[in-house]
Amino acid sequence: MADTMISEQVLAPIVENRAVAPDHVELIISSAVLSQAEPGQFAHILTPGMLRRPVSFSRIDQENGQVGLMFQIVGDGTRWLAERRHGEVLDILGPLGHGFAAPDPTKPWCLVGGGVGVPPLYAAAARYLHRSRPDVIIGARTADWVLMAQDFKDLGLDVTVATDDGTAGHAGTVMGPLETWLQDHPDGQVFACGPTPMLAAVSAACEGRATAYVALEQRMGCGIGACLACVVKAHGKEHAEYRRVCTEGPVFAAKELIW
């Protein structure tokens, strides 16, 4: 998989800057190298700060040599990134990390995304649609912040929405709809990405039932495995150990991890 894939430092021009929700932007950039990415892998983007910003791919278009990078504006680095326009060039390391493996086509498949965790799941749905059709559960704080629902619908997929304030879909978190799905599909497989508490809840809900794979977010340094900043605690052979989100992840089998 990703081990044998290319990863480089590329200078990639921005083709489009789209506002997708309040404080959420998607940059479409042109790069043949990055368009070789697996869903769940990420780009490590140079900003004026001391650290690059890791952003997972929202779209991977090998045919046209383009990728999408969707992110929330949370600080100076992402604000700077959100202000970049058509024609400007980004300095990116990537594609990096291990993404989502292809789903088992013999088992029901569900995607569970919270907030800005949705984009890599869309990339996974688009890539593996020919093997399996996932059910999609999207969570957000409020209706305006629901990401990529129409993109999933355009793939012909059913989308269940949950918002914390009840302004769209189910009132509450993704866990209500997920529980219903798990009762109907106890032998299923779940791909999830979102805030860590959500992923912990998804992992717990799937235990003993569905197989869960989670894409993690963590404060990252080098992004390539050298600095050991972005680690996560996992079950080792004998005792607990840290694994690198940037290298062994960002996608892990939920049962590997210590929540």
Binding site: Q218, R219, C227, L228, V231, V232, E241
Partner: peptide
């Protein structure tokens, strides 16, 4: 083992 996260 190193320290708890966040580390940077």
């Amino acid at each position: 083992l190193g320290n708890p996260t966040p580390r940077v």
